[in-house]
Measured scan of single mutants.
Amino acid sequence: QTVVIGDTTYHLNNPEAAQQIAKELAKKYGLKVVISGNTIKLK
């Protein structure tokens, strides 16, 4: 699972954790979560 935040890319072996982290950050910073395949992007 790949999480992309701005110009930073994180690789996590746990998809659920990756999605949870993405949701928390999106909520905290008012970002939009875009999931395509096994890549999660925060914009």
Score class of each variant (00 low, 15 high):
residue 14 N to E: 06
residue 40 I to L: 04
residue 30 G to W: 09
residue 38 N to R: 01
residue 28 K to Y: 11
residue 28 K to P: 00
residue 25 L to A: 00
residue 24 E to M: 14
residue 2 T to C: 15
residue 10 Y to C: 10
residue 26 A to Q: 06
residue 42 L to A: 00
residue 37 G to E: 05
residue 10 Y to H: 03
residue 2 T to W: 14
residue 7 D to M: 13
residue 25 L to S: 00
residue 42 L to G: 00
residue 9 T to K: 08
residue 28 K to D: 04
residue 22 A to S: 02
residue 8 T to L: 12
residue 2 T to Y: 13
residue 33 V to M: 11
residue 3 V to W: 08
residue 14 N to K: 04
residue 18 A to I: 13
residue 6 G to R: 05
residue 23 K to L: 14
residue 30 G to C: 08
residue 27 K to P: 02
residue 26 A to E: 09
residue 23 K to C: 13
residue 31 L to H: 06
residue 2 T to D: 06
residue 2 T to I: 13
residue 40 I to E: 01
residue 5 I to Y: 09
residue 18 A to D: 02
residue 30 G to M: 06
residue 10 Y to F: 12
residue 13 N to S: 12
residue 4 V to T: 11
residue 29 Y to Q: 05
residue 1 Q to V: 15
residue 25 L to M: 05
residue 12 L to T: 06
residue 22 A to M: 09
residue 1 Q to H: 14
residue 26 A to T: 03
residue 5 I to K: 03
residue 18 A to Y: 10
residue 20 Q to F: 10
residue 9 T to G: 02
residue 36 S to M: 11
residue 6 G to E: 05
residue 1 Q to R: 09
residue 26 A to I: 06
residue 15 P to S: 09
residue 30 G to S: 03
residue 38 N to F: 05
residue 17 A to C: 11
residue 24 E to A: 14
residue 39 T to I: 12
residue 21 I to W: 15
residue 8 T to N: 10
residue 37 G to K: 02
residue 6 G to A: 06
residue 18 A to M: 10
residue 12 L to S: 04
residue 13 N to Q: 11
residue 21 I to C: 15
residue 42 L to S: 01
residue 34 V to G: 01
residue 43 K to C: 15
residue 12 L to Q: 01
residue 34 V to T: 10
residue 35 I to M: 06
residue 10 Y to L: 14
residue 3 V to D: 02
residue 11 H to R: 05
residue 22 A to T: 02
residue 14 N to F: 11
residue 16 E to W: 10
residue 19 Q to C: 13
residue 40 I to G: 01
residue 2 T to Q: 08
residue 7 D to Q: 12
residue 25 L to V: 03
residue 41 K to F: 15
residue 27 K to W: 06
residue 17 A to G: 04
residue 31 L to V: 09
residue 31 L to G: 04
residue 39 T to K: 05
residue 6 G to L: 08
residue 16 E to C: 10
residue 7 D to Y: 14
residue 4 V to S: 08
residue 18 A to F: 13
residue 38 N to Q: 06
residue 17 A to H: 09
residue 38 N to A: 06
residue 25 L to F: 05
residue 19 Q to T: 08
residue 33 V to K: 00
residue 38 N to V: 03
residue 3 V to F: 10
residue 36 S to N: 10
residue 40 I to Y: 03
residue 15 P to T: 10
residue 31 L to W: 10
residue 18 A to G: 02
residue 27 K to M: 12
residue 26 A to V: 04
residue 41 K to Y: 15
residue 21 I to S: 01
residue 15 P to K: 10
residue 41 K to S: 13
residue 21 I to Q: 01
residue 37 G to T: 01
residue 11 H to D: 07
residue 28 K to S: 02
residue 34 V to Y: 10
residue 5 I to E: 03
residue 12 L to Y: 14
residue 5 I to C: 14
residue 42 L to V: 09
residue 33 V to Q: 00
residue 6 G to K: 04
residue 38 N to I: 03
residue 4 V to E: 07
residue 35 I to F: 07
residue 18 A to T: 05
